[in-house]
């Protein structure tokens, strides 16, 4: 099988500054100012073509950072990412222009993705249909509800037919009917053998949908394996985590970071 995604020893360092003065000094002088914060440390994993990988982990474990790095939005500090094919990231706030209408946004976005005029005309009806926006499609996007917005963003990303799809909690908005419809579309993609990355807090959706699970904890890989193997471990961890109080959590965090 071909590898679709190879992530090797990815580390992402952010700098935390105390005020703008440190920021400027760090930029201008060779000496390092500010505190280092590692959002990801030494993360490696591989996904084969056609795999559906779920990213799980508690808040702040680096799931979104990792998916952003794979999508090529955020640069990594160290390590390398190899990707075969085109990546599309679906996030809740996918860039839409508020002043333009839904239809214009579709055209604009497709244009920026490198589609020709002819292809855009061909794709447009199916996107509009999928988004279920009907007459709102010719209204400015700023008048949309958040559900409508994410529906439009989702409809565009899904219809451009990418090789690798990264879904960052996009299915948590919108009503149940639309979520189901999106899930159907995902299943269709799965059948076509597309590689997908699924970031979500919903364990139910994960079980239903994913083949493999990457469990991140404080920016490190805690576990990577088949769904049946990892999910139970994560569930029992979640139970323990819920019971812990603040101090216990801090101690756990310290231990995990070492």
């Amino acid at each position: 099988m071909d590898k679709a995604i190879i992530v090797q020893n990815i580390t992402k360092k952010y700098k935390l500054y105390n005020g703008t003065k440190e920021r400027l000094l760090d930029l201008l002088t060779p000496k390092s100012y500010g505190e280092d914060f590692f959002a990801l440390t030494d993360v490696s994993f591989e996904a084969e073509k056609g795999d559906v990988v779920g990213f799980i982990g508690i808040n702040g474990s680096g799931k979104s950072t990792l998916s952003n790095i794979i999508a090529g939005i955020v640069p990594e500090t160290m390590g390398s990412v190899q990707i075969t094919g085109q990546v599309a990231l679906i996030a809740v706030a996918a860039g839409l222009k508020g002043d333009l209408t839904g239809r214009e946004n579709i055209e604009l976005k497709l244009l920026m993705l490198g589609f020709s005029k002819k292809e855009i005309i061909e794709l447009e009806p199916s996107i509009i249909e999928f988004s279920e926006l009907e007459k709102f499609i010719d209204q400015p996007v700023k008048s949309y509800s958040s559900g409508m917005r994410s529906r439009l963003g989702f409809a565009i990303s899904v219809n451009v037919d990418p090789d690798i799809l990264i879904i960052d909690e996009a299915l948590s908005v919108g009503d149940k009917a639309f979520a189901e419809k999106s899930l159907e579309k995902m299943k269709e993609f799965k059948k076509q053998g597309k590689t997908m990355i699924f970031v979500s807090h919903s364990i139910g959706q994960m079980k239903q949908f994913c083949d493999k699970i990457l469990w991140l904890e404080f920016g490190k890989v805690k576990d990577y394996g088949d769904v049946e193997e990892v999910i139970p471990k994560y569930e029992s961890f979640l139970n323990d985590w819920k019971k812990m109080n603040k101090i216990e959590r801090q101690e756990y965090r310290k231990k995990a970071m070492k």
Partner: peptide, 13 residues
Amino acid sequence: RLSLYELKSQNKN
């Protein structure tokens, strides 16, 4: 193409 959208969105209101 993008510059035309730019012009459009700036004067939409």
